[in-house]
Amino acid sequence: MSGDAMDFARAEHLPNLREDGQPADPSGLPRQRQGITPQMHGRYPDYDVLAHADAWDEVTRERVVGRAGRVPVLRFFTAEEAAALRTLLDLALAQDAEPRIPVLEIVDSRLHEGRRDGFRYEDMPDDGQTWRAVAAAVDATARERGAASLLAADHPTRVGIVDDLAHGRLDDGPWSELNSARAWSVVMRGALSAFYSHPWAWNEIGFGGPAYPRGYMRLGAGPAGADPHEGAEAFSRDPVRDVPARGLE
């Protein structure tokens, strides 16, 4: 990774501003030193939102800490559906290594418990059936492209299928009975809700977390605008001063 892509005051790391529309390899990001992030990379290597759980009210603490510690067993999806969807979700959320947020398991438990979003498009089945149909359709598309399943496909084939799904380019064959753009929306709504409700993801992005009853005393910009318990961006610190400041000498 080039040095300028790591200067987060500049925006050259952002996909819209890069020629190929893709970010640099995240392996060049700082490794997490406190707490956990998905794949252990992030911008806030010394920030662990769970370390502040004692500042949260009891019901919130129970819910959020419980969420971080729980990997529900699969009860809704079949093994075959789970294999296809796990592959799809790992790609869609770029979870290519451990530790992973158990997105499939969280989605599965929501569907098993019948929790709903409150609407269904007229041309779509309910959300659970949509997830099952997507699992079948991505495997069928993989077979059309010469693989035994999405899981068995090589990386470029998998990425091609997900990219086509994400951009509404799948209409024929296995998708003729399913509005693929709306199906992608159902899948990603569930996936993003599972992923970004997880404290590990908050560590990665430097989100302050529940903040009740403590609230915030500083509303300003930059490092000086942060409350003491908020995360510091790795590259907003001078490394020469940082080591003594954190008492690591």
């Binding site: 996909p15 970010p23 995240p26 911008r43 770029a94 997900v162 951009h167 970004y196 908050w202 990665e204």
Partner: peptide
Amino acid sequence: PLPIAWAEHVLADGHWGHALREYMRDYNH
């Protein structure tokens, strides 16, 4: 927007996978 709403915002702009994660890491900016 809190993180889930921000993720839906990034998704709506057409990003997924590593690009989505990168915009999410950029949340505070």
